[in-house]
Design a protein around this nucleic acid. Structure first.
Length: 570
RNA sequence: GCUCUCGUAGUUCAACGGAUAGAAUGCCUCCCUCCGAAGGAGGUGAUGCAGGUUCAAUUCCUGCCGAGAGCACCA
């Protein structure tokens, strides 16, 4: 379908020449409202502005010109049904049933390859996201980062890039000392190890804030952790880190992420500190005993890179990380996905990096997503009011189970399906929003199983599978060759998939794909409700089955790009 | 105080400067003898305020009001 756009554009350009009109910038787009055709262009409106003539008249002239030579010579005519001129001067293009037949054959032939692009071909891209800290909970904020990061990774890969996934984790620092201190004080109960560490962190944090003597004790712990000078602390540290990391892996498996690289602050800190020290005078300067970068001259603010205790801050660590990443995997582009709370700080950091290593800074792109907020305000593991990813998943799963209590599933089938539906519901609620915006997270309200939702998409897919299975049982063939006179919204939408995927990738906006898939599913549900698809006596049945098969391919591809599972039954 | 986001139906979200501002949910009607009702059809209802640029503004610019985030040794 992308070629059609190019042909239309070329035809219009050549028509303009024939009409002695100036060339101009104009857009060709798919109207959201399908009654406005398959393509629409504002070329006449743009020209009306330039030539000070009536856009309607210009549109008529272009339409007349297009009806004769140019499109004919480009062999588009069999695919172009008609061109309409509509006030205030739009040109709307409608494609023929033959076009949809050919597009559907292509979808069926290409299967899950349909929609792959070449805009990122042979680019090496490292994408960092999720970034949970060992010794702390994996909460719904991490879930958000992971969901968005995984979808973007898959989108970028779909356009031909080689994508490496990276996860950066804070395995040293005060939060670790607090957790270890808390763990020593905590009376162990029968809870799972990972939950014990969560409690330990909250205990340590509170004690740190409320008690001066304890604070000193925890600071000492922190020093010992850095130096690895205390055997019992080391043992606890090593055990706790392993518990955390193993636990995170179980979540990544459920969410469909497989990281290629893991980076830790314990390594980036050392490296970053060295980098800062090498660039004193040129980039950094001493101020109040700390090593800072004065951002003011670049319209930014000043940030501390090495503190007065001679320890690297997050800024220095991140600087080191950029270098470490490139050493491990020489990328063309490095994308870092984080919450938007660190946006300003990242601008400072990138400026500092630019002064040290312009090449690396140029390859680095910082994308931010909004924050997941509770109705009660900010979530904080310090206070202990965090919602963990696992508890959310469990909660949603229990709602799903209630819904299907009546259905006939074996226990194993049911567990896998319930998990898939729960993951879909949660991911959809995150991905449907434009990136960068906050989500007020209200359990039970934001995660929906009906209407605009993950399960809605899965359900449409499952229905399509049931139809195809039935046709198979009745021995009816799939064949797009005999289309009916009227083309439905479903077919009109199918061919837009590659363009939507390309645009969602270019703008790093998975929500565009979510919106498209939702509309596609709605079109299929209407299609399904208004006619019988499998009908042995009907000559159009093979065509309708082809439409159904094409739909099912696209829904599966689309959901897979979003890292949302597609159960065959539900 | 300064900087950056963001104000759209009761609620949660869309809208690449364009056409009648789309969905979902809620509430009100209908639709299972028919491939799965987690569904379909219809109704209800919105661009914070005031200016400006444009043939055309939710979108761009200015001011005001309101919400959130960041602003030196946490990450």
């Amino acid at each position: 379908m992308i070629e059609i756009e190019k042909i239309i554009r070329d035809s219009i350009t050549s028509a303009l020449g024939g009409l002695n009109l100036p060339t101009t910038d104009f857009t060709i787009e798919h109207p959201d409202d399908l009654t406005r055709g398959d393509y629409a262009t504002n070329v006449a409106l743009m020209l009306g502005k330039e030539t000070k003539k009536n856009p309607m008249e210009i549109a008529e002239k272009i339409a007349d010109k297009l009806k004769v030579a140019p499109l004919e010579s480009l062999k588009v005519r069999p695919w172009l049904e008609r061109v309409e001129v509509v006030a205030p001067g739009f040109l709307n293009f409608f494609l023929t049933p033959e076009f949809f037949t050919s597009e559907m054959s292509l979808i069926i032939a290409q299967g899950d390859k349909y929609g792959e692009g070449i805009t990122e071909r042979s680019k090496r891209v490292m994408i960092e996201y999720t970034d949970p800290n060992p010794f702390k909970e994996f909460h719904i904020g991490h879930l958000m980062s992971n969901t968005i990061g995984e979808a973007i990774s898959r989108l970028v890969a779909s356009q031909g890039a080689e994508v490496k996934r990276a996860c950066y984790q804070g395995d040293v620092g005060l939060h670790v000392a607090k957790a270890i201190w808390g763990r020593l004080k905590l009376k162990t109960q029968n809870a799972k190890e990972i939950e014990e560490w969560g409690k330990a962190y909250t205990l340590g944090s509170k004690a740190y804030e409320n008690d001066e003597a304890t604070r000193q004790e925890i600071v000492d712990f922190n020093k010992k952790i850095y130096e690895r000078s205390d055997k019992s602390i080391n043992d606890l540290y090593d055990a706790g880190k392993k518990v955390s990391l193993d636990y995170f892996e179980t979540i990544y498996r459920r969410l469909g992420t497989k990281f290629d690289f893991y980076f830790f602050e314990s390594e980036s800190g050392q490296f970053g500190k060295k980098l800062v020290e090498e660039n004193v005078v040129k980039v950094f300067e001493k101020s109040d005993g700390a090593m800072v970068f004065k951002g003011e001259k670049y319209n930014l603010h000043t940030r501390v890179f090495i503190n007065a205790d001679d320890l690297p801050t997050y800024e220095a660590k991140e600087l080191g990380l950029a270098k470490i990443k490139y050493d491990r995997y020489p990328y063309d582009q490095s994308i870092v996905i984080t919450g938007n709370e660190v946006k300003d700080y990242f601008r400072v950091l990138l400026k500092a990096l630019e002064l040290i290593s312009p090449a690396l800074a140029e390859k680095t792109l910082h994308l931010t997503h909004g924050m997941l907020r509770l109705p009660t305000g900010k979530m904080s593991s310090r206070v202990g009011n965090v919602v963990t990813a696992e508890s959310l998943l469990d909660e949603v799963k229990s709602v799903v189970k209630l819904k299907i209590a009546e259905r006939d599933f074996t226990l194993g089938e049911q567990e896998a399906m319930v998990e898939a539906v729960a993951v879909a519901a949660i991911k959809y609620s995150i991905l449907k929003q434009a990136p960068g915006r906050n989500i007020i997270f209200d359990l039970g309200r934001s995660v929906s199983l009906e209407g605009d939702s993950g399960p809605y998409l899965q359900y449409a897919y499952v229905r399509a599978q049931a139809v195809l299975a039935k046709a198979n049982a009745e021995n009816i063939q799939v064949d797009p060759e005999i289309p009916p006179a009227e083309i439905s919204d479903l077919e009109r939408r199918l061919g837009r998939f590659p363009e939507v995927v390309a645009r969602a990738t270019r703008l790093y906006a998975p929500n565009l794909l979510v919106t498209y898939l939702t509309e596609l599913a709605a079109s299929f549900n209407t299609y399904y409700a208004t006619q019988k698809i499998v009908d042995a006596g009907d000559p159009h049945a093979p065509y309708r089955l082809a439409t159904t098969l094409a739909f099912s391919h696209l829904m599966k591809s689309g959901l897979t790009l979003l890292a949302i599972p597609t159960p065959e039954r539900m």
